[in-house]
Write a protein that binds this DNA or RNA. Structure first.
Lengths: 333, 333
DNA sequence: AACGAAGCGCAAAACGTTTCGCTCTGTTAT
DNA sequence: ATAACAGAGCGAAACGTTTTGCGCTTCGTT
């Protein structure tokens, strides 16, 4: 069908080795370079990556495993990862784990079978077992957003606890004392942000009544139900901290249903700055993650392993977060 | 590193051909089958897809090109496409065209170079030029959502015009006469839905004043600005039809900013049933697309081409739409 | 008992690259 | 002038599969 390196050989009279050398950036005599380039243009030659991969055992493809591909957080991440990867000539093979640990492990195996050069994951599991096949095959892995329990894998993330701590301080500085939190204990990010909240409260000498703590899951439902519960309390909090995008949305919806309004009746502090945050009224004051950097740094880290084979030790990159002021926090007295 | 078919050969004493035949589902003597299976288990053998691909020129990988990977519509589609594909042993290589026709064409070329067996696209372009390289390489393509101008490529989509027509009829049946539309003329889907709207109005003998027609783009901004303009009119419409998800969101936000409310002051008819629709209050009455079927049918169609080489003629699958009642339409008697 | 067909196995040739070890040419340092 | 050496090219062997054509058995039929 399409031209092969052998056709170039026939056309130029050079050997396969020389042409291959040219293709891979080696030095060839200027006259030969000209010949080869002419032949390539003429025959529309393109390297067959499959054949190349077979001998180099490198496919210029990385696998990306996410817990849910339709989540905006992951979609945004995938966009940046893809962009960075393509710039370097790599493609990305996507796998959706559907929040299922078993599927996640199968995905890893699948990608290894496809001979990806590396894997980037936003994992479901926090326990490294699912990465065992990758380690055995010596394929580098970089995690985003969620490190392993034992930190035994490279990871790019934010300092969730610190980000939450600082944000909650703002709430306190605005005079709020009765602050509730809607989060979860299961997911790593949720747990950290929740504990950042507790730390801020503790630091300010404020106590958090049991009923102000809603750990119903880092999901739309979690946020929705949590908020409903809070609004039914006889002594309502003056402010609520919601620890991710979905929870924030769910909570906003619950508020809308209740007839109360923000920030008049209750103040909101949210997390993540994805599309929705702009359209909701009032604009939620929130912690924002550096989405593009998360993706780019992960790619950078992974390619260091792939191309330079850096095996030194596992590195963890912690990026700074931003804070976006909205109109959802009312200053008390 | 890992075991090859040659190791199986040594272990079993059979020839490569026999083992290969077994691997590909051919008939082998029961005793040999047992030997091979034992060896495979023992050596943890797995087919090297690269080598297989080199000789069969099939990679069991399909390329997916979308105009924007972070869009919820595409993310949802990718989830279903991926699921269907994996069931059949195929993987998916994702490319984001970033709404850029030139990048879209480069993406196609890239995928061909990666030797994908087929391509599924939610295209930016409506002109088939970008598919030329795929046609030349004889790689099947299936489009989703947006057919080509000349219908020269397989496509899975809904009947946009019909869906809009029916939906707008509901508005009219509720007593609305002064109906505005926020849409676009550039994108195929927008254009069709807009014309479905016009058809419904025409059918009912209603005229649409110029200023009720906002064609500012199928985007969040388009919806937002369109709605703002409508709300500034001295004679406001009693209802507005918004022709996709982003437009709907933008319009809802504009309404929120205005102090008016839905459905008391104005009625809404939206399009697409993605997460957001649930959290917005009031719940928008809307047209819903069969997201999972769109993805699954596209995969089915593509695999027909890949595995059976069906070349008959281009087929177009048109799926039915649903209608989700919300509380955003006020009945004017 | 002979014969053709069917079933199964084998060796070898592909697929399109990269890489290894070698030769050749020409240049620099002694 | 010569030894040493760097630069560039070459042929051949690899990478791990599938596929093709052919030969051997075995079985059922006449």
């Amino acid at each position: 069908m399409s031209a092969t390196i052998r056709d170039i050989k026939n056309q130029t009279g050079l050997s396969l080795a020389t042409i291959s050398k040219y293709l891979n950036g080696g030095n060839v005599l200027p006259e030969n370079r000209v010949k080869i380039e002419a032949a390539i243009r003429e025959l529309h030659y393109e390297v067959n990556e499959l054949a190349r991969g077979l001998v180099t055992s490198r496919t210029k493809t990385v696998g990306v495993v996410v817990y849910a591909v339709e989540s905006l957080f992951n979609g945004t991440l995938i966009k940046y990862i893809g962009k960075a990867l393509r710039k370097l000539g790599y493609g990305l093979l996507i796998c959706d784990s559907d929040n299922d640990e078993e599927l996640e492990e199968r995905n890893i195996r699948y990608l290894l079978n496809k001979k990806v050069d590396g894997i980037i994951a936003v994992p479901v599991s926090s326990d490294g077992a699912f990465l065992k096949p990758a380690r055995e095959a010596d394929v580098p892995v970089v995690l985003i957003d969620r490190p392993l329990k034992d930190s035994s894998c490279d990871c790019v993330r934010i300092d969730n606890r610190q980000a939450a701590l600082r944000a909650v301080r703002v709430l306190i500085a605005n005079g709020h004392r009765d602050i509730a939190v809607i989060s979860s204990e299961r997911e790593y990010t949720a747990y950290e942000r929740y504990h950042g909240f507790l730390e801020a409260m503790d630091e300010a000498g404020l106590s958090v009544p049991e009923e102000y703590i809603c750990l119903g899951g880092h999901s739309f439902e979690g946020g929705n139900l949590g908020m409903k519960r809070l609004l039914e309390l006889s002594r309502k909090p003056s402010a609520v901290f919601m620890t991710n995008y979905e929870v924030t949305l769910g909570a906003v919806m619950a508020l809308n249903d209740s007839g109360l309004s923000c920030p008049e009746d209750i103040s909101f502090l949210g997390f993540d700055d994805l599309i929705m945050s702009h359209i909701i009224k009032p604009r939620i004051t929130r912690v924002v993650q550096p989405m593009s950097s998360l993706g780019e740094k992960a790619v950078e880290l992974l390619l260091n392993h792939i191309e330079n084979g850096e095996e030194l030790m596992t590195t963890e990159i912690v990026l700074g977060t931003g804070f976006m002021e909205g109109d959802s926090i009312r200053a008390l007295e």
